[in-house]
Amino acid sequence: MTAAPAQALLLASMLFALGLLGVLVRRNLLFMLMSIEIMLNAAALAFVAAGMRWHAADGQVMFLMILALAAAEAAVGLAILLRLHAAGRPTLDADTGNRLKG
């Protein structure tokens, strides 16, 4: 079964909203990173859907780029997370990050 681009777009926007909601409401840094991954994938899905709609390869090229971007983002984000942990921060609560200390 092939999904129509409109449906794919709907799914993408739902995923994006879900991710955004996750970023906004979760305080755990790890979950926030995961939510950002969801948002990136939603955007990538939208590209793929658009590529299907116009029969162009550009959408899939963009998807590959976003894949690489997401990997880089996860690497950097997790590295920061580990550094925070290594520095002795006892919690992963993002709201304590504004103290910029330790």
Binding site: L20, V23, L24, V25, R27, M32, A94, D95, G97, N98, R99, L100
Partner: peptide, 11 residues
């Protein structure tokens, strides 16, 4: 300095 607020404003 709260990331979540920033994200909210961006949204």
């Amino acid at each position: 300095g709260r990331v979540r607020r920033y994200a909210g404003w961006i949204a």
